[in-house]
Design a protein around this nucleic acid. Structure first.
Length: 492
RNA sequence: CGGGAGGUAGUUCAGCUCGGUAGAAUACGUGCUUUGGGAGCACGGGGUCGCAGGUUCGAAUCCUGUCCUCCCGACCA
């Protein structure tokens, strides 16, 4: 157990907070619900962003940027979307401050500077983007529009948690416009697939792709696809969503195109997004009581070298080998940090890099080097081994692959052993309460039943898996007939 | 929005009951000894005690108001 980190078994949410703060990922700010993402945490986000951005471009999308402010009249155009977000919107009402005549050195909002129309700080950008698409789309030749934006959004949540739910967060939101329903649905599914691939191959996070139930669906969507992941404490986390918006926004903003037969038609839409919440998922999926555990592909530096030296000429030799390894790995695009700071001792560095989740630590010391050896420690299993200097770089590269794979396999085994079937209400309640994880059960398809289950157990329908097999059954609560099982869980 | 905890050094916190010189640990700086699992000793710098009033000879401490944060719950596309 590491200095100052609450063990998971003692208090899972304190453990989570300790990791975020002590690994240097983020801090609370003086603004309620808003966090400061520190360089180490931001570096992880940059790696996520770069990988996703590349995937978006490979699937034909381009980036653009729309304003953070949405005039209220635009925001309210799509009623369901507006209603869904209304109660968590920050609103700009004034554009100027002035000196407080009654309190020197203080400022007050200038009542003379009230805006004619309030500006909503975007909680999501469908409204302002579709207002633009209206101007961009005349003909079927203008379609599809495949745009993504990297942005911050604000949702005034009642209760916030670092990375998992903050009042302001960073994300990407894709907004596409299509001529046909089929093409839009294809896009929705394609991007959900991109998310699943990213989660599994980069984050080492196994996910279940599925559809949301009516009550969990995005406000303004016809269908919401999602990727759902399971955290170590048995709670589910929605890691990404991709929405088929039908013609709802096209109708709200009057976006029509002329088809090849000279007839006006409404445009079909999708939107999809993932956020800095993924960093929360990353933490809770892999880390342990010693600290963070990062997948090599997203670690700011997958390898850290700790030189241990006693003499000047020894130091020279050690650093020469460290730099050689650094250069070899750099050629493969792998960042290596050499920590030659001499104000802290090796033991401190070991603990520090374990806390920060660096996948591989290499110790190069004069003692082992006399025998041409170095020490290699892997963070995922906490195993240490000694290796020959010759061939070290090649070994490290293959070790990083191993770790990436092991992290995923471990999380997948955990996830798979935590999907259980329930066939009666008693079984269901018992599994949700005592085991956690996903519970696969029949449901009659109604929102009433879903609500009642939630009220009784706090479990919600996470998704209806895409590859669901069809089987006759009866709803665990109402006993009414059902054609397939859905996944329930308590969720973040 | 309900319930709980809290705001004192960069950080974690003690001091408050019972008013009287602003404290510890850690971090930081300097020096020496150290360096293979969170080093030791010595010296040193560092604070409008969240903010505003009030009581008092005197307030971190008592009273009133106010702002903010965290945790639990409700809420959460």
């Amino acid at each position: 157990m590491s200095k100052g980190i609450t063990p998971r078994a003692e208090n899972y949410s304190n453990w989570y907070n300790d990791i975020v703060i002590k690994a240097g990922l983020a801090d609370h700010s003086d603004v309620r619900g808003c966090m400061i993402i520190k360089p180490y945490g931001y570096a992880i986000w940059e790696n996520m962003r770069d990988a996703l951005d590349k995937m978006f471009k490979e699937t034909g999308h381009m980036n653009a940027y729309f304003p953070i402010f949405v005039p209220k009249s635009l925001f309210e155009a799509e009623e369901k979307n507006a209603e869904g977000f209304a109660k968590e919107c920050a609103v700009v009402t004034h554009y100027r401050l002035k000196n407080d005549p009654n309190n020197e050195g203080k400022l007050i909002v200038d009542p003379a500077a009230k805006l004619e129309e309030e500006l909503v700080v975007r909680p999501t950008s469908e409204a302002i983007i579709w207002n633009s698409y209206k101007k961009w789309i005349q003909s079927y030749r203008d379609l599809p529009i495949l745009i993504n934006q990297w942005a911050n959004v604000v949702r005034w949540e009642m209760r916030t948690r670092l990375f998992l739910r903050t009042a302001e967060f960073l994300w990407q939101e894709g907004h596409t416009a299509h001529a046909t329903k089929e093409e839009a649905i294809e896009e929705t599914e394609k991007m959900n697939n991109v998310y699943a691939t990213f989660a599994e191959e980069w984050m080492g996070l196994p996910v279940i792709q599925g559809l949301k139930s009516d009550s969990e669906r995005f406000a303004g969507a016809e269908e919401t696809y999602c990727i759902e992941a399971l955290m170590q404490d048995g709670k589910a986390l929605q890691a990404g969503t991709s929405h088929f918006l039908g013609q709802n926004f096209a109708k709200a903003f009057d976006v029509k195109y002329m088809n090849s037969e000279n007839k006006d038609e409404y445009v079909w839409a999708t939107s999809w997004g993932v956020s800095t919440r993924l960093i929360g998922a990353l933490i809770m999926a892999h880390s342990d009581d010693k600290g963070l555990v990062l997948p090599p592909k997203l670690a700011p530096y997958p390898v850290v070298i700790v030189p241990i030296t006693k003499t000047d000429e020894g130091k020279e030799k050690v650093l020469a080998i460290a730099k050689e390894i650094q250069n070899n790995l750099k050629q493969k695009g792998i960042q290596v940090k050499i920590d030659d700071a001499d104000n802290v001792r090796p033991g401190f560095k070991f603990a520090e890099y374990e806390l920060k989740g660096v996948p591989v630590r290499v110790t190069i010391g004069e003692r082992d080097l006399a025998n041409n050896l170095i020490e290699v420690a892997r963070r995922d299993t906490n195993e240490k081994e000694t290796k020959e200097v010759d061939g070290a770089s090649e070994y490290l590269i293959s070790l990083l692959d191993d770790i990436q794979k092991n992290i995923f396999d471990r999380a997948k085994t955990f996830r798979d052993t935590n999907i259980r079937e329930a066939n009666t209400w008693e079984e269901f309640e018992n599994l949700i309460e005592k085991e956690g994880g996903f519970v696969s059960a029949h449901w009659d398809g109604t929102a009433e039943t879903e609500d009642e289950i939630k009220a009784k157990t706090k479990a919600t329908i996470r998704c209806i898996p895409l590859d669901n097999k069809q089987e006759e059954g009866t709803c665990i609560l109402s006993g009414k007939p059902s054609k397939e099982r859905v996944l329930f869980a308590k969720a973040y």
